[in-house]
Design a protein around this nucleic acid. Structure first.
Lengths: 344, 344
DNA sequence: CTGAAAGCGCTAACAA
DNA sequence: TTGTTAGCGCTTTCAG
């Protein structure tokens, strides 16, 4: 089944002009007579002519498309970030191609390379939990493909980055738990490769230190699949509660991680006893039981900012060499799940 | 900033062949000598040659891309459906372009036409709540663009459709509420234009009828923006509870609708008194308070099935004229929110 | 077995 | 003001 659209040629033939005249008329070139323009425009309208963007891309070496790689869209943070991305891209005349890595390094690579080959003008990337080797990204970047990282960033590539203030977000969340009289705060986090993991861990440690609580390595659990594998989290929790130093509170470091951990805790009937807070952008934290204390990232803003920077990169005439990392504030929304510890 | 990839020409020049020889060698044509092939392949590998898909599309009039239009990805049903779509598309060699209408008819049209112009090989569409005029879709379809509808379908276009069994899903949910001794069951639903709205309403009515409960028009509230505008739902609820016949239970007809309604009810402190169930694919219904009784759609399956049918349509040599509508079963997951009515 | 040339839809330098 | 032509990267007749 083919599906044909009218071309410039059709217009030219019908009106007895050359294709170049039609082309120019269509784009309102000043060197075309008003009559011709009018005739062409009218006829084009009549047959519902649409320029073929593929041909345009081939010619102009640009597609006006930007590619996005996230771990998954069924994640409150990313779906909100994507809305931010779209909102900017849309009125800058770009369209957005979304792909999911599902936290798989291989899938991420395939997606990126597909989009690069397909000729996106630039890439918005949030690195997957399992990715360790990002040399393929580095190659593309060195070849001149504009890339902006958001949320999960890397030091290995020098470009714009947009992140939440993970350090402070984690710091405040942890300190909040401390103020609520929790002392043995476990931290469940994602793959240690990720920037967000390190930053949030650092914030957690800093809060402990400030309040003279010794850091205990066994209270930190890494889930290298970022919560995609529920058993991983279940194991982590089991270990935590089997250890001699049992946690009295839990602080989780990612959207999926938070929701899944919360669910497991509830099933384990541990819910009542432990304080709980975590990074998540869920809209329904207040509907949970107990209502969830959360660290919320400015996902929409992050998406918008990253896109603005990317478009800037794409459209800049001369290579940009000075890059900044934008850090946006998180907010701590305090609800029931982190309520003051009840003395035993 | 441009970002250049090696072309066939580069290979030809380096190896002193014509571009056609290189092209043939690359695709392993039988009429090329083994030596030549080997040389070309090796060199291509060495410089990391990738065929330019844009040029290919221009030539072959196909892109191996399928376009998706949903109202929003931050919706459990759609993000799960998209995962189903991707899973099939991916291993059939298609890539997936996702766009969101945000329930806006205009945005939907822009997206569809952009993708059509951009040359997707086919479209997977779930109609937006605000769409009334879909003649532009009809046009494209008549011109030969393969389209499969899923979830929110239309009678106006004859093609494959994949939906959940909305009628039975609504029927069972309503009947369940009736069995729990609720008698005045309100129905909060989306735009009356949508197929899912009609089907679910019919199921609701049928259950009432079966149990000899008179249908009361004032208990049905239409939110034509499908829950995108919270005030709309808030107004609906206020009206319901101000009326002389107050509902003792509520049945909601869509993912977003369900979550938002539940949240508002909770804020209104009406939660305790009314039975509640609704269509939603949330994964965390059991974490809510009260835990949510839900009608769950086989979103992943719907996505997969729709994609299989679309690929079939795209790849079929001769036009297909016999279309079916696949109807997949929903499941009712019973939890606390619909617990038996406490007698006053 | 290999090359020259045309063409997919469009733009732009060059001619007229 | 308009037409001719070449070319973007690739495939594919048609000729050797």
């Amino acid at each position: 089944m083919k599906f044909e659209s009218p071309t410039i040629k059709d217009i030219a033939k019908a009106l007895n002009f050359s294709t170049s005249t039609v082309s120019r008329a269509l784009r309102g070139s000043y060197e075309i007579s008003t009559d011709t323009k009018k005739a062409v425009l009218e006829y084009a309208e009549k047959i519902n002519y649409r320029p073929n963007p593929i041909a345009l891309s081939l010619k102009e070496r640009r597609t006006r498309a930007i590619g996005v790689v996230v771990s998954e869209i069924a994640n409150n943070f990313f779906s909100q970030a994507i809305n931010g991305i779209e909102s900017i891209a849309y009125n800058r005349g770009y369209h957005v191609i979304i792909t999911q890595s599902h936290e798989s390094a291989e899938r991420e690579k395939v997606n990126v390379e597909h989009m690069a080959a397909r000729g996106v003008d630039g890439l918005l990337v949030s690195i997957s939990a399992e990715a360790t080797d990002i040399s393929y990204l580095k190659d593309l970047h060195e070849k001149g493909l504009p890339i902006v990282f958001f949320d999960r960033v890397t030091d290995e590539i020098d470009t714009y980055k947009v992140v939440a203030d993970n350090y402070l977000g984690a710091f405040h969340a942890t300190e909040h738990l401390i103020y609520q009289d929790y002392k043995k705060i476990a931290h469940i986090t994602s793959s240690p490769h990720l920037s967000i993991t390190r930053e949030r861990l650092d914030g957690y440690k800093a809060a402990l230190e400030k309040h003279k609580i010794p850091f205990n390595e066994t209270l930190v659990k890494y889930c290298s699949h970022g919560g995609m594998i529920e058993a991983e989290i279940e194991d982590a929790l089991t270990e935590l509660f089997k250890a001699k130093v049992k946690p009295d509170a839990i602080f989780t470091a990612g959207d999926r991680l938070t929701i899944v951990t919360f669910g497991i805790l509830k099933r384990m009937k541990q819910k009542k006893e432990v304080g709980f807070t975590g990074f998540t952008n869920t809209q329904v934290g207040d509907l949970f039981s107990p209502a969830l204390t959360v660290v919320r990232q400015p996902a929409f803003d992050i998406g918008q900012t990253a896109t603005e920077l990317l478009v800037q990169l794409i459209e800049s005439k001369r290579p940009i060499t000075e890059f900044e990392t934008r850090i946006l504030k998180t907010s701590l929304i305090i609800r029931e799940s982190s309520a003051k510890k009840v003395p035993l």
